[in-house]
Amino acid sequence: MADAQRIDTPRGRTLAYHLTPAAPQTQAGTSERPGVVFLGGFKSDMGGTKAVFLEEWCAAQGLAFLRFDYSGHGESSGAFVDGCIGNWAEDAEFAISHLTQGPQILVGSSMGGWISLLMTRRLCDRVAGLVTIAAAPDFTEDSMWAGFDQAQRQALEMVQQVALPSDYGEPYIITRRLIEDGRDHLVLRDPVPLPFPTRFLHGTADADVDLSVALRLMERATGDDIQLKLVKNADHRFSTPECLALIGVAIQEVLAAI
């Protein structure tokens, strides 16, 4: 696999990324199709199963594709514990604005679903469609903070961080800054305008993001072409061959509806 490229942001962060160009148009007069941008999850990286699958899938379809690491993730600069939703949203906005051209279909996984919803506000003229996978909007407030006991809340106040166990490796270090910054970027307290084809994918066996989050997002979302697709027994990773194929199907549906 080719080495990642890098780009520096105005905030002094260096983002690692892989960019696959679109295939040349083979038919005169054919309008340029949107590119695809993958937005990864909390403490995940662009080398994950879904990101790599989508790179190969988009190449086969002749679509431009961007995958990148937020700061503090994967190959990008910075420490994870120094990051927050605001920083990672800035990273996403910068990457999409400077590394892609024309309309884009955003594919957001878990936290990337939250980031993608923020991008639909900030880059509304560039978003042609949206696919989310186990989207986790507002998780810092509605899952983490709401689930903390008194001792954990006191730890955040006194030592500025608390460790949470993870099924994906070492514990997550959750900082007070992450929680407080998350409150500045909540999206589910108001209607969520999505005036383009949108597909929400969620597994019924997701132990990390409750199905109620998907239902709440569906309730808040406004638009003419929005669908929530539940996949029986799929977990949060959503990375089985069957689930990966469904992501491709969702992108094809969005493309067909644009």
Rank of each mutant, 00 (worst) to 15 (best):
Q101C: 07
P103Q: 12
L106K: 03
L106G: 02
V107K: 01
V107C: 08
M111H: 05
W114C: 05
L117Q: 05
R122K: 15
L123H: 08
L123C: 08
C124W: 09
D125Y: 08
D125F: 04
R126K: 14
A128Q: 10
L130M: 03
L130Q: 01
I133H: 09
A135R: 00
P137M: 00
E141L: 11
D142A: 09
S143K: 03
M144E: 11
A146F: 05
F148Y: 10
Q150Y: 06
A151I: 04
R153C: 08
M158Q: 15
V159Q: 15
V162D: 09
Y168H: 10
G169I: 07
G169Q: 07
E170K: 11
Y172R: 07
Y172I: 15
R176C: 12
L178M: 15
E180N: 12
E180Y: 08
D181V: 14
R183N: 05
L188K: 00
D190T: 13
D190K: 09
D190N: 12
V192M: 04
V192A: 03
L194A: 11
L194T: 02
F196L: 06
P197L: 09
P197A: 13
T198I: 03
R199K: 05
F200H: 06
L201W: 04
G203L: 06
T204L: 05
A205F: 07
A207S: 14
D208Y: 02
D210W: 00
L211G: 11
L211Y: 01
A214Q: 01
A214N: 02
R216D: 14
L217S: 01
M218W: 08
M218Q: 14
M218P: 00
E219M: 12
E219P: 00
T222I: 10
T222G: 15
G223K: 09
I226F: 06
L228P: 01
K229F: 12
V231W: 10
K232L: 11
N233Y: 08
H236W: 03
H236K: 06
R237V: 01
